[in-house]
Design a protein around this nucleic acid. Structure first.
Length: 439
RNA sequence: GCCCUGGUAGUGUAGUGGCCCAUCAUGUGGCCCUGUCGAGGCCACGACCCGGGUUCAAAUCCCGGCCGGGGCGCCA
């Protein structure tokens, strides 16, 4: 007999034979009758075991440990005595894999577990329906993003994650031993995306891990994260990049709402899908807003720090009812490490760079890149970087490089903000941070 | 890197010097119960992160270590 899911039982006739399988969530033994709750990917079904009918097997059945994998054959019985509308009268219950006792983490216990316990036993943690929904929705978000890029004629690319040097300075790179040579894990596909602009690909995107060896310990950073990057050629200005970004976010969120409504409902998440164009607020104006709100700075130049981001997020919500907005025209002084950022012609103290903020948190960073070889190398020297060290990158600028720009988006942050998760790790199956390296 | 905070049964907690051979819940084991839906009732089991120190007395105070959680810097 072919196995069906709990959801599929609805379609069976009353009394029809079927086979189901899953994890034994709990046993309610009432003495003469017992109810087994078995969970599969689509939900939970109930198996009724009557002592008078199964005889001495009864004791064996009600003693199967919770979370064991069981295979149940039987027939559907319609009933109005359960929320499911049916239950299974079994002809056989086979324990395919018995769970040990006690569980290191209860899947349906009434007590919560701490994060450390949960992540040490992530396979059990993920058996909880609401945890799986997070990843189903994350998958939909990825689907929506890919759907958008295909529609916009982007090429999906894969660039190396091991290389000889990093995109921007060396302080935050993980060093690896590469056949005896010193190598680093990629912190960004930035330089490769740009090289592909020179190659004439015109529009590329990549969804891949990026690594930052920073010593951060926050609810919005991990050492390994999924970076969504796109790059496009022949733009007039960073406005083209912002337009593409806001259409992308709008499309992806729509996609999630369209395909994941039921799960969003169960997670009690209401996604407010924004519409293009998103509001653009120049950096200096953000500072003014924060000054008006009474923020004080200890250091100069004044920047939108974490506290400022949160204040700004609330301000934008209250005044413009928007969760997504760009902070534009970042001062060159604040983008010092970003040597490839194009500056404004009319005012080199400003860059064409922007951030996209989502509910008071940075989600995207991007802008127009400097494609003029001379200007680019001059900006490198300003930073005391030696162009000689970047020859394989710079070469691409010497033989025909179109004007271009793009962004990097933190996918895990997107998931976090979209679903209002307390911690970025909640949206990552097996997060890597300063202390966690397994599972 | 700086700052704050925590580590008590499998899980989550109470306990801030003697009232603690440690509270409660959940779990696990046993018994009762033929319609459970966080089932219920009765009984039992199970723990003070590690190492020093202070004290008549330490889960509790001090020092060091190890391991978490959070904030900031920074960033996606």
């Amino acid at each position: 007999m072919k196995r069906i899911h709990s959801k599929g039982v609805m379609e069976l006739e009353d009394g029809e034979k079927c086979m189901l399988a899953g994890w034994l969530q709990e046993v309610r033994n009432l003495g003469g009758i017992a109810f087994l709750k078995v969970r599969d990917r689509t939900g939970v079904f109930q198996v009724v075991v009557v002592k008078k009918e199964v005889g001495e097997d009864f004791d064996h059945i009600v003693n199967i440990p919770r979370e064991s994998v069981v295979i149940v054959e039987g027939k559907k019985q319609a009933t109005d005595q359960t929320d499911f509308g049916y239950e299974i009268l079994p002809t056989s219950i086979r324990v395919e894999s018995e769970a040990g006792k006690p569980l290191p983490l209860g899947v349906v216990d009434k007590v919560d577990a701490e994060m450390g316990t949960r992540y040490d036993n992530r396979f059990l943690d993920l058996r909880k329906e609401e945890k799986r929904y997070i990843f189903e929705l994350r998958g939909l978000l990825l689907g929506g993003l890919r759907d958008f890029f295909l529609g916009e004629d982007f090429i999906e690319i894969n660039t190396p994650k091991i290389g000889a040097s990093g995109a921007e300075g060396g302080a935050t790179l993980f060093k690896v031993d590469y056949y005896g040579k010193e190598a680093y894990l990629a912190q960004s596909p930035q330089l490769y995306k740009q090289i592909l602009m020179s190659a004439g690909f015109e529009r590329v995107f990549e969804i891949a891990p990026a690594y930052r060896a920073e010593d951060f310990d926050t609810i919005r950073h991990t050492s390994e994260f999924i970076s969504l990057d796109f790059e496009m050629s022949f733009i007039d200005s960073s406005d083209d990049v912002m337009d593409m970004t806001s259409y992308m976010v709008e499309h992806a969120l729509n996609y999630v709402v369209e395909h994941g409504a039921e799960m969003l409902d169960k997670l009690d998440v209401d996604i407010a899908v924004p519409t293009h164009p998103f509001r653009k607020v120049p950096h200096y104006e953000c500072i003014e807003i924060l000054e008006d709100l009474g923020k004080e700075w200890e250091d100069e130049p004044r920047d939108v720090d974490t506290e400022g981001e949160k204040m700004l997020g609330e301000y934008m919500m209250e005044n413009y009812d928007t969760e997504l907005y760009f902070i534009t025209e970042f001062p060159s002084e604040l983008k010092k490490n970003t040597f490839y950022a194009m500056r404004k012609d009319y005012d080199p103290s400003l860059t064409t760079y922007f951030d996209l903020e989502y509910k008071g948190q940075e989600l995207v960073s991007g802008g127009q890149r400097e494609h003029r070889y001379d200007v680019l190398t001059a900006q490198m020297k300003e930073l005391a970087l030696d162009p000689e060290d970047f020859q394989s990158y710079l070469k691409a600028f010497k033989y025909g490089m179109p004007p271009h720009g793009g962004i990097g988006l933190g996918l895990d942050r997107f998931v976090q903000q979209m679903l209002d998760l307390d911690n970025i790790r909640e949206g990552i199956l097996f997060p890597r941070d300063t202390s966690r390296l397994e599972p």
